[in-house]
Computed example of a mutant assay.
Amino acid sequence: MSIIRRIFGEPKPGKPLPVIRIDPVSLAAAQRAERSGHCACLSSRGKKGTPSVPNLHAEPQDTSAPRWLALLALIDDSRNTRVIEPSATMPAGQWSDVITLPAEVQFLTAVSQLRLYGSHLRRLPPEIGRLSALGNLDIYTSYSLHWLPYEMTRCARLRDTRMSTRALYGNIKTRLPFPRLSGPLEVLQPQTCSVCDKPFGECGATPYWTTQRIGTDVAPLLAHSCSSECTARIPDAPEGYYARPHKGGGGVGMPVSDL
Protein backbone atom coordinates (compact mmCIF):
# COMPACT_ATOMS: atom_id res chain seq x y z
CA MET A 1 0.00 0.00 0.00
CA SER A 2 1.38 3.41 -0.97
CA ILE A 3 1.97 6.07 1.65
CA ILE A 4 -0.78 8.18 0.04
CA ARG A 5 -3.29 5.38 0.64
CA ARG A 6 -2.02 5.00 4.21
CA ILE A 7 -2.79 8.66 4.85
CA PHE A 8 -5.99 9.18 2.85
CA GLY A 9 -7.38 5.66 2.53
CA GLU A 10 -8.71 4.09 -0.64
CA PRO A 11 -10.06 6.57 -3.23
CA LYS A 12 -13.76 6.76 -4.01
CA PRO A 13 -14.83 5.48 -7.44
CA GLY A 14 -14.07 8.08 -10.08
CA LYS A 15 -12.07 10.23 -7.66
CA PRO A 16 -8.28 9.87 -7.83
CA LEU A 17 -6.04 10.13 -4.81
CA PRO A 18 -4.71 13.65 -4.16
CA VAL A 19 -1.26 14.60 -5.32
CA ILE A 20 0.73 15.80 -2.33
CA ARG A 21 4.30 16.55 -1.42
CA ILE A 22 5.57 15.14 1.83
CA ASP A 23 8.91 15.86 3.44
CA PRO A 24 11.26 12.94 4.25
CA VAL A 25 10.78 13.23 8.02
CA SER A 26 6.98 13.10 7.74
CA LEU A 27 7.19 10.31 5.19
CA ALA A 28 9.25 8.18 7.56
CA ALA A 29 6.90 8.94 10.46
CA ALA A 30 3.84 8.08 8.36
CA GLN A 31 5.36 4.75 7.41
CA ARG A 32 5.91 3.94 11.10
CA ALA A 33 2.48 5.07 12.30
CA GLU A 34 -0.17 2.60 13.43
CA ARG A 35 -3.40 3.77 11.78
CA SER A 36 -5.74 1.56 13.79
CA GLY A 37 -6.62 1.99 17.44
CA HIS A 38 -7.70 5.64 17.47
CA CYS A 39 -10.74 6.72 19.48
CA ALA A 40 -14.25 6.75 18.03
CA CYS A 41 -14.95 10.44 18.68
CA LEU A 42 -14.82 11.29 14.98
CA SER A 43 -17.24 8.54 13.94
CA SER A 44 -19.87 11.18 13.21
CA ARG A 45 -17.58 13.03 10.81
CA GLY A 46 -19.23 13.61 7.48
CA LYS A 47 -22.71 12.69 8.72
CA LYS A 48 -25.60 15.13 8.62
CA GLY A 49 -27.29 16.42 11.75
CA THR A 50 -25.88 17.36 15.11
CA PRO A 51 -23.17 14.99 16.36
CA SER A 52 -23.50 13.72 19.91
CA VAL A 53 -21.40 15.32 22.62
CA PRO A 54 -18.32 13.15 23.18
CA ASN A 55 -16.92 12.16 26.54
CA LEU A 56 -13.71 13.83 27.61
CA HIS A 57 -10.76 11.44 27.38
CA ALA A 58 -9.65 10.76 30.94
CA GLU A 59 -8.20 7.28 30.53
CA PRO A 60 -5.34 6.61 32.95
CA GLN A 61 -1.94 5.80 31.52
CA ASP A 62 -0.43 2.49 32.60
CA THR A 63 2.83 3.71 34.13
CA SER A 64 4.11 0.24 34.97
CA ALA A 65 4.30 -1.06 31.39
CA PRO A 66 7.62 -1.33 29.50
CA ARG A 67 6.43 1.25 26.97
CA TRP A 68 6.15 3.89 29.70
CA LEU A 69 9.55 3.06 31.12
CA ALA A 70 11.02 3.24 27.62
CA LEU A 71 9.47 6.70 27.13
CA LEU A 72 10.87 7.90 30.46
CA ALA A 73 14.31 6.67 29.44
CA LEU A 74 14.01 8.47 26.09
CA ILE A 75 13.12 11.72 27.81
CA ASP A 76 15.97 11.36 30.28
CA ASP A 77 18.41 10.80 27.42
CA SER A 78 17.03 13.78 25.46
CA ARG A 79 17.48 16.57 28.00
CA ASN A 80 20.24 18.20 25.97
CA THR A 81 18.87 17.50 22.50
CA ARG A 82 16.92 19.87 20.28
CA VAL A 83 14.65 17.36 18.53
CA ILE A 84 12.63 14.57 20.13
CA GLU A 85 10.61 12.07 18.09
CA PRO A 86 9.45 9.05 20.13
CA SER A 87 8.20 7.09 17.12
CA ALA A 88 11.71 7.05 15.66
CA THR A 89 13.20 5.22 18.65
CA MET A 90 10.34 3.27 20.25
CA PRO A 91 8.79 0.14 18.69
CA ALA A 92 5.52 1.00 16.96
CA GLY A 93 3.50 -1.26 19.23
CA GLN A 94 4.84 0.47 22.31
CA TRP A 95 4.46 4.03 21.04
CA SER A 96 0.87 3.51 19.85
CA ASP A 97 -0.12 2.44 23.38
CA VAL A 98 1.05 5.71 24.93
CA ILE A 99 -1.93 8.02 25.55
CA THR A 100 -0.10 10.91 27.24
CA LEU A 101 3.41 12.17 27.77
CA PRO A 102 4.92 12.06 31.27
CA ALA A 103 5.25 15.19 33.37
CA GLU A 104 9.00 14.78 32.98
CA VAL A 105 8.76 16.47 29.58
CA GLN A 106 9.12 19.73 31.52
CA PHE A 107 12.85 18.99 31.82
CA LEU A 108 13.34 19.08 28.03
CA THR A 109 14.17 22.77 28.14
CA ALA A 110 16.59 22.47 25.21
CA VAL A 111 14.07 20.84 22.86
CA SER A 112 12.99 23.09 20.00
CA GLN A 113 11.11 20.46 17.95
CA LEU A 114 8.62 17.97 19.35
CA ARG A 115 7.60 15.49 16.64
CA LEU A 116 4.49 13.48 17.55
CA TYR A 117 3.24 12.75 14.02
CA GLY A 118 0.75 9.87 13.92
CA SER A 119 0.63 9.37 17.68
CA HIS A 120 -2.26 7.81 19.60
CA LEU A 121 -2.05 10.44 22.34
CA ARG A 122 -5.30 11.45 24.02
CA ARG A 123 -3.79 14.46 25.75
CA LEU A 124 -0.62 16.41 26.39
CA PRO A 125 0.41 17.13 29.99
CA PRO A 126 0.21 20.71 31.29
CA GLU A 127 3.94 20.48 32.04
CA ILE A 128 4.56 20.93 28.31
CA GLY A 129 4.19 24.64 29.01
CA ARG A 130 7.66 24.51 30.64
CA LEU A 131 9.36 23.86 27.28
CA SER A 132 10.90 27.30 26.98
CA ALA A 133 12.80 26.55 23.74
CA LEU A 134 9.93 24.79 21.91
CA GLY A 135 9.45 26.38 18.51
CA ASN A 136 7.85 23.57 16.49
CA LEU A 137 5.11 21.13 17.51
CA ASP A 138 3.96 18.42 15.08
CA ILE A 139 0.89 16.42 16.14
CA TYR A 140 -0.41 15.85 12.62
CA THR A 141 -2.60 12.73 12.16
CA SER A 142 -2.84 12.31 15.94
CA TYR A 143 -6.57 11.73 15.52
CA SER A 144 -7.29 10.97 19.19
CA LEU A 145 -5.88 14.32 20.33
CA HIS A 146 -8.78 16.80 20.36
CA TRP A 147 -7.47 19.61 22.56
CA LEU A 148 -4.32 21.08 24.11
CA PRO A 149 -3.58 22.30 27.63
CA TYR A 150 -3.87 26.04 28.17
CA GLU A 151 -0.34 25.94 29.57
CA MET A 152 0.92 25.81 25.98
CA THR A 153 0.36 29.57 25.85
CA ARG A 154 3.49 29.82 28.02
CA CYS A 155 5.67 28.44 25.22
CA ALA A 156 6.79 31.88 24.11
CA ARG A 157 8.95 30.62 21.23
CA LEU A 158 6.32 28.34 19.70
CA ARG A 159 5.80 29.61 16.16
CA ASP A 160 5.11 26.56 13.98
CA THR A 161 2.47 23.92 14.62
CA ARG A 162 0.97 21.18 12.50
CA MET A 163 -2.30 19.63 13.62
CA SER A 164 -5.12 17.61 12.13
CA THR A 165 -7.56 20.41 12.85
CA ARG A 166 -10.58 18.31 11.87
CA ALA A 167 -9.90 16.16 14.93
CA LEU A 168 -10.20 19.17 17.26
CA TYR A 169 -13.23 20.11 19.32
CA GLY A 170 -15.28 22.92 17.80
CA ASN A 171 -14.03 22.37 14.25
CA ILE A 172 -16.40 23.89 11.70
CA LYS A 173 -16.10 20.96 9.27
CA THR A 174 -16.52 17.99 11.60
CA ARG A 175 -18.74 19.85 14.11
CA LEU A 176 -17.20 17.83 16.93
CA PRO A 177 -18.71 19.39 20.08
CA PHE A 178 -16.81 20.19 23.24
CA PRO A 179 -17.39 17.68 26.07
CA ARG A 180 -19.30 19.07 29.02
CA LEU A 181 -17.22 20.17 31.97
CA SER A 182 -18.44 20.05 35.55
CA GLY A 183 -15.80 19.61 38.21
CA PRO A 184 -12.09 19.01 37.57
CA LEU A 185 -10.85 15.51 36.80
CA GLU A 186 -7.81 14.51 38.82
CA VAL A 187 -6.09 12.88 35.86
CA LEU A 188 -6.26 16.16 33.90
CA GLN A 189 -5.74 18.77 36.63
CA PRO A 190 -2.38 20.57 36.69
CA GLN A 191 -0.42 21.28 39.86
CA THR A 192 -0.86 25.04 39.48
CA CYS A 193 -3.38 27.43 37.94
CA SER A 194 -3.25 27.42 34.15
CA VAL A 195 -3.37 31.23 34.11
CA CYS A 196 -1.31 32.57 37.02
CA ASP A 197 0.83 29.45 37.61
CA LYS A 198 0.22 29.63 41.38
CA PRO A 199 -0.99 26.75 43.57
CA PHE A 200 -4.74 26.30 43.83
CA GLY A 201 -6.24 27.68 47.02
CA GLU A 202 -9.14 26.41 49.07
CA CYS A 203 -11.56 26.97 46.19
CA GLY A 204 -9.62 24.50 44.05
CA ALA A 205 -9.58 24.39 40.26
CA THR A 206 -12.40 25.20 37.86
CA PRO A 207 -12.03 23.85 34.30
CA TYR A 208 -13.01 25.85 31.22
CA TRP A 209 -12.72 25.51 27.48
CA THR A 210 -11.31 28.31 25.38
CA THR A 211 -10.16 28.59 21.78
CA GLN A 212 -6.86 30.36 21.11
CA ARG A 213 -4.20 30.63 18.45
CA ILE A 214 -1.27 28.32 19.20
CA GLY A 215 1.60 28.62 16.76
CA THR A 216 0.09 28.58 13.28
CA ASP A 217 -3.22 26.97 14.30
CA VAL A 218 -6.37 27.88 16.20
CA ALA A 219 -6.97 25.16 18.77
CA PRO A 220 -9.25 24.36 21.72
CA LEU A 221 -7.51 24.60 25.09
CA LEU A 222 -8.45 23.22 28.49
CA ALA A 223 -7.73 25.72 31.27
CA HIS A 224 -7.92 25.15 35.01
CA SER A 225 -8.54 28.46 36.77
CA CYS A 226 -7.98 29.19 40.45
CA SER A 227 -10.29 32.21 40.62
CA SER A 228 -12.75 34.38 38.75
CA GLU A 229 -9.95 36.92 38.34
CA CYS A 230 -7.81 34.40 36.49
CA THR A 231 -10.76 33.32 34.36
CA ALA A 232 -11.26 36.95 33.38
CA ARG A 233 -7.61 37.11 32.29
CA ILE A 234 -8.13 34.44 29.63
CA PRO A 235 -8.17 36.31 26.28
CA ASP A 236 -11.19 36.32 24.02
CA ALA A 237 -11.17 33.65 21.32
CA PRO A 238 -10.37 34.68 17.73
CA GLU A 239 -13.19 36.21 15.73
CA GLY A 240 -15.82 33.67 14.73
CA TYR A 241 -15.41 31.48 17.82
CA TYR A 242 -17.27 31.54 21.12
CA ALA A 243 -15.50 34.47 22.76
CA ARG A 244 -15.31 33.67 26.46
CA PRO A 245 -14.33 30.56 28.44
CA HIS A 246 -17.18 28.05 28.54
CA LYS A 247 -18.20 24.66 29.88
CA GLY A 248 -18.83 22.93 26.54
CA GLY A 249 -21.73 20.71 25.61
CA GLY A 250 -23.98 20.93 22.55
CA GLY A 251 -23.26 23.73 20.12
CA VAL A 252 -21.41 26.00 22.52
CA GLY A 253 -17.84 26.59 21.40
CA MET A 254 -18.64 25.99 17.75
CA PRO A 255 -17.67 28.82 15.41
CA VAL A 256 -20.39 31.47 15.75
CA SER A 257 -21.07 31.45 12.02
CA ASP A 258 -21.92 27.74 12.26
CA LEU A 259 -24.30 27.88 15.23
Rank of each mutant, 00 (worst) to 15 (best):
I4M: 00
I7L: 11
P13L: 14
G14N: 13
P16M: 00
I20N: 02
R21I: 07
L27C: 12
L27A: 15
A28S: 13
A28H: 11
Q31C: 13
Q31F: 07
Q31L: 13
A33M: 14
G37A: 07
A40G: 09
S43C: 02
G46N: 07
K47D: 09
G49F: 07
S52F: 01
V53Q: 09
P54M: 04
L56Y: 04
H57Y: 07
A58M: 12
A58T: 15
T63W: 08
A65P: 00
P66M: 02
W68F: 13
W68N: 13
W68L: 13
L69N: 15
L71G: 04
L74G: 04
S78I: 12
N80R: 14
R82V: 15
R82G: 02
V83F: 06
I84A: 08
P86I: 05
T89C: 08
T89W: 03
P91S: 12
A92D: 10
Q94A: 15
S96M: 12
S96E: 12
D97L: 12
V98H: 03
L101P: 01
L101C: 02
A103G: 14
A103Y: 11
E104C: 09
E104F: 01
V105H: 01
V111T: 12
V111W: 00
Y117P: 02
G118W: 02
G118P: 03
H120K: 05
R122C: 09
R123Q: 05
P125C: 06
P126C: 10
I128S: 08
S132N: 11
S132V: 14
A133E: 09
L134H: 01
G135I: 06
G135R: 01
D138Y: 01
T141F: 14
S142N: 07
S144N: 06
S144V: 05
S144G: 09
L145G: 01
L145T: 02
H146Q: 04
H146Y: 05
L148D: 06
M152E: 04
M152R: 04
R154E: 11
C155Y: 03
R157S: 11
R159A: 14
D160A: 14
T161P: 06
M163E: 03
M163T: 03
Y169M: 07
G170K: 08
G170Y: 01
I172K: 13
I172E: 15
K173D: 13
L176S: 03
L176A: 01
P179H: 02
R180G: 08
R180L: 12
L181D: 06
G183L: 07
Q189M: 14
Q191G: 12
T192F: 13
T192N: 13
C193I: 02
D197F: 13
D197Y: 13
K198A: 15
K198T: 15
P199T: 06
F200E: 09
G204I: 04
A205F: 04
T206L: 02
T210V: 15
T210G: 03
R213K: 15
I214D: 06
D217A: 10
V218L: 01
P220Q: 04
P220K: 07
L221Q: 01
A223M: 00
C226G: 04
S227P: 08
S227A: 11
T231C: 09
P235H: 05
E239F: 13
G240K: 04
Y241W: 13
H246V: 03
K247S: 08
K247L: 11
K247M: 10
G248H: 05
G249L: 04
G250C: 08
V252D: 06
V252G: 01
G253R: 05
P255V: 05
D258V: 14
D258T: 15
